[in-house]
Design a protein around this nucleic acid. Sequence first.
DNA 1: AGCTATTCCGAAACCGCTTTCGGATGCAAG
DNA 2: CTTGCATCCGAAAGCGGTTTCGGAATAGCT
Lengths: 354, 354
Amino acid sequence: MARVSLKDLAKHLGLAEGTVSRAMNNYPDISMATREKVKKAADALGYRPNNTARRLATGRAEAVAYLMPTSHSAISTPFVSQLLQGLGDALAMRGWDLMVVQPQAAEDELETLRKLVASGKVSGVVMSRPSKSDSRIEFLKKSGFPFIVHGRSRDAEGYAWYDVDGRQAFADAVDHLASLGHQRIGFIGAPSYLNFAQDRVDGYKDGLVANGITFDPDLISVTELTDEGGERAALDLLNDTAPPSALLCVNDVQAIGALSAIRNKGLVPGEDVSVIGYDGVWMGRHTNPPLTTLAQPQAHSGRQLGDMLLSIIDGGNPTDFQVLRRAELVRRKSDGPPRALTPKIQTNSREEIS
Amino acid sequence: MARVSLKDLAKHLGLAEGTVSRAMNNYPDISMATREKVKKAADALGYRPNNTARRLATGRAEAVAYLMPTSHSAISTPFVSQLLQGLGDALAMRGWDLMVVQPQAAEDELETLRKLVASGKVSGVVMSRPSKSDSRIEFLKKSGFPFIVHGRSRDAEGYAWYDVDGRQAFADAVDHLASLGHQRIGFIGAPSYLNFAQDRVDGYKDGLVANGITFDPDLISVTELTDEGGERAALDLLNDTAPPSALLCVNDVQAIGALSAIRNKGLVPGEDVSVIGYDGVWMGRHTNPPLTTLAQPQAHSGRQLGDMLLSIIDGGNPTDFQVLRRAELVRRKSDGPPRALTPKIQTNSREEIS
DNA sequence: AGCTATTCCGAAACCGCTTTCGGATGCAAG
DNA sequence: CTTGCATCCGAAAGCGGTTTCGGAATAGCT
């Protein structure tokens, strides 16, 4: 039951440790015969190399870390488990390990990263949700440590990333809404230090100018990435004197909150006011009404991220690994042409205001 | 920029490596003075101990692994990211690492576990979603390796676990429904090799006998843990000649699917047929109608699991760590008294059947 | 048979840190 | 001026592998 070490194995075979080691690792200078013999004995005795020792000796960690996003109301990070799964698959191909590390509240996340890199525990890092100008990215670039970003910062130069084009997506969404006849399109956003949030407002504005609609700052409301956030923001916008006829939300969970807000105001989402979300979470099919959204092609993002990171660790040039995917508008029932202002809405607004 | 090793530090200070090491680790036989001096020099030079070397020397892994559930349609495992977060927090208190490992498709999960235990990479394991009689648990028990289970198997003896009492919960739910007047209560379940699925049917049956309702096997439908699964199963049950007036679902995502099925049949959930789910996912607040559910107190389960595992690794007796929490019925709008059979329903049923 | 070229394996150093053990030093007590 | 005890620190032996280097044995050639 005690663990068998290389030494045990060697003694058992009457060979030197070094020989056994090389046999196990398929060195060319070991005869086919002894190589076979060693391997057979190895799994007869149930030998498992001690990974820690191996790591120390080789200097390779054979592991990568996933840096958990900091703002993690589980609700806003349903993608984590999918991503980890994909990452795990990619790493498993080589028998590498996956560590997840969480910035400690006490120390800043940069310090967490520093320690991680210095510890030698992993040979690469993948991180999510970069901010507009992300100090973690700067640090990693400078250090030369292999890494890849899920998303990207404002300045996306000089490192590897995998992202979905939120800017394009929101421009598309505005196009769509405008073609439906909407002129007053509201935007529910997230704090713009998050780069994806910035991207998406940018897209929203792009779409506005492309359709000759002048930008009205009153039509934007920034809030948290939760359902309650979306609810509050929607209420805000809708209670305005000149409310929007459509709401673009920075993600689906906000959009779902917005749907509730609209219904609570006695209006019907998709008819009185259109709502479009972003992400394509499965729940969108079951909301009331089913949510029109910009769906990310995120099925295999984890796997991709993993493969790319591995290539970089192997010496690939990080800048060769920058992939931008496109989101797809999936129309369900929460969007439609604007309704002419009916007494109902006006009455309602007045009531809320007075 | 090159990494500074213990040796460098020692040379720099004119001390022996051993001394420096003991100073860093607060050995009592190092004078306060040199201890201070060493530590100051350490972070002046930016010394970070190489974790791999430390592990090899001490024999402690200072890391635990989370065994990902195998059946992971991201949709059915939204809890993973929360759990990992909690685990991470618990481990961070000691500076330990968290590894996530995924059973490889090629080899069975037992083999994955064997390798993990033998590799010495971690000093403990937490696993989720045990089956009724789980070979992983048997293996771990036999091996004496520290572990804890999120959930439990049929025979919950001799190991540590943290679970929510699904049996009790479903009995409660039946009580509730019965008190509302329901007599034909349907059950949408999951494959019963999953122990939690078994628990919940058991609870369902308990509830039935407690309320003097005779069990009708036609009122049970087993399906996958997805929204489509719930949808299909609900349709099945509802199209029967004597359809149930209420549906108990093994989890919320199925319940959400069931809601859709009911609406698609032209019935109104919560009035024509009641639906109760299990889990308490945030989405339940936004479904149509809002979903009544048995909410798990899962907020800090990860943290708890982690703390318990750590205690076991420290030598605690696993059987001292078995905690059973209770789920809470949160009433929203998807349940209500049964409606007397109206022409509408009868017509509908006939139409579907013919 | 004699010599060089291969093939295969053993010996030993090393990876970076921990920990035991004993020696040196300083100080109080005898 | 010893003897006795703490107190501190240095030396060295691991932890369990990998990898370089060189030597022995075998094979190939003339």
